[in-house]
């Protein structure tokens, strides 16, 4: 153990020295937990003092539910598969799209930290692992998405969409989590790969709505022309939307229930979960190299 050097003229009123650790703490040490919690706390303080993001994040999906629900209200029953009303059909789409948008924006605050130099404050600190910066963002966005999901589920219930079973709700939460994790990872990867927030916003802008329209969020696969069916059935958003929709309609679900009939084959609930987990793995591995280079 070495302590920091003290020169001969130092006086007794000097602060007691911090012990320097010659082998610094690493991933998942108490130090890692300490820094991750502190970084997460900062994001929650920001949210509390500037609640506009939270308010907009709750109001926007509810407007989707009400306005989009009204738009297609007069479509004859039975057009949307087993859903009784369009509102019931739409609910799953709004849950997933809201979580997706939130996660896609996860990189923005980090980008501003980069641009304003706040990130340098973190980078000169002896962090146990700079992965804590990524994890703090992921924790924050996940908590936010779950809050939004609860709000959407509650309002949908009052609009007559019904509720999945208790266990079903658990699976809904799991699906949201899996989606948010992967997309947050991608967004943070972009944050360090792109030169500035203008470029990041451009990417978000270009990805967001097209992915929504090329998914089963607003209409079922059967509505779409053949080519769009192929695109939508490969869109990760659909892998999240379809199982949630299924859980809303069936209380007697199992992991082998077929939730999606893609042009290229049937997907079970279990398969969609595995696909989402695979997407997470891909995203995490994909950005790991980049983050290691930029944040090592």
């Amino acid at each position: 153990m070495t302590t920091t050097s003290v020169s001969p003229q130092s006086t007794p009123n000097r602060l007691e020295k911090t012990v320097i650790q010659p082998t610094p703490p690493s991933l998942f040490s108490p130090e890692f937990v300490q820094e991750t919690l502190a970084l997460t706390r900062r994001l929650f303080i920001q949210l509390q003092r500037r609640p506009a993001t939270l308010v907009a994040g709750i109001v926007q999906p509810l407007m989707w539910l009400v306005l989009f629900g009204a738009l297609f209200k007069n479509v004859p029953e039975g057009m949307f598969g087993m859903s009784q009303t369009y509102g019931q059909f739409l609910c799953a789409g709004v849950i997933v799209f809201t979580a997706f948008s939130g996660a896609l924006n996860a990189g923005l605050p980090v980008m501003f930290d980069r641009e304003f130099g706040f990130l340098n404050r973190l980078l000169v600190a002896p962090l146990a692992s700079r992965f804590s910066i990524v994890l703090a963002s992921a924790l924050f966005i996940t908590a936010l998405s779950l809050l939004q999901t609860i709000a959407i589920v509650a309002v949908s219930f009052f609009l007559g969409a019904g509720l999945p079973s208790a266990l079903g709700l658990g699976v809904v939460a799991l699906i949201v989590l899996l989606l948010v994790l992967g997309v947050t990872a991608l967004s943070l990867g972009l944050t360090f790969a792109l030169p500035g927030h203008i470029e990041l916003l451009a990417v978000i802008f270009v990805t967001n709505l097209p992915l929504l329209f090329a998914s089963t969020a607003l209409v079922p696969l059967s509505f779409m022309p053949a080519w769009l069916q192929v695109v939508a059935s490969l869109n990760p958003l659909s892998f999240a939307i379809e199982p949630i929709r299924y859980l809303y309609l069936h209380s007697d679900w199992s992991f082998s229930s077929v939730v999606m009939q893609a042009p290229w084959g049937n997907l079970s609930l279990g398969t969609t979960l595995l696909l989402l987990a695979g997407l997470d793995l891909l995203a995490l591995v994909g950005i790991q190299k980049l983050l290691q280079r930029k944040l090592a």
Binding site: Q34, R41, I45, Q46, R49, R50, A125, P126
Partner: peptide, 21 residues
């Protein structure tokens, strides 16, 4: 580069955690 929504004390608390005090 200070986070303008944090108070001075909160910034120092964050800093303390980053240095594992």
């Amino acid at each position: 580069a200070l986070d303008k929504v944090l108070t001075g004390r909160e910034l120092l608390q964050l800093q303390a955690a980053l240095y594992h005090l």
